[in-house]
Amino acid sequence: MVSKKIGKVIGSNSHIDYTCEIYRKRDKDNPPTPADHSFGQFVYIEKEIDGKNIHLIGVIYDSQILDPDQGRTGPKLAEPHEQELFHPSYIEEKMTLAGIALLGYCEVDDDEFCSNEHCVPPWTIEIDDIVRTLSDKDFLKFHEVDGEINLGYYQNLMELAGPFGTDLLSKIIDQLKDMKPDEEKTLEVIQKNIEFSKRIKGV
């Protein structure tokens, strides 16, 4: 999968928890498909810091759709099909929002990841920063530390994603297992532990 712009940052709940507004059909020629902003999709935001090209890596852990028309009472000045003409901004408020958890960052040189860190990034993302999908190749590179899969963001993601943390991590591990079959057994131990803690302990 190649990288694709899917939206822009419109707010944040914490230093690692951002809200992205997903582009709609009219925003750009090649709008994102539902698969591009699905649950568990890895994304990045490109920043230039001290002359270095940094990709802040995150994952979509939640989503929300907004329709301001719902629940609004009172008279309307126009028929629904005419509202687009008289109240363009009102129509535009219908939107899909995606919650992005930042998991770390990579330094990029000549479009190649040259170092990666699984930690809370020291920099802040700004409003309107563009959010792009992370390619499969970069997804794997982000997870490889010294040639081995690493999930150093595990604890932060579980805390941030709350009730979705287990499913999210399980999905990530599934992807990684397909990409690195030689590490399947070790990843399975982690995956089973996560699933056990949710499904068995919860009973």
Partner: peptide
């Protein structure tokens, strides 16, 4: 104990994967 679930997997490697 949960890191010791698979006798073929070294718990050290599991721990390493989780950072």
């Amino acid at each position: 104990d949960s890191f010791l679930a698979d006798p073929e997997v070294n718990p050290k490697h599991v721990a390493k994967k989780l950072g």
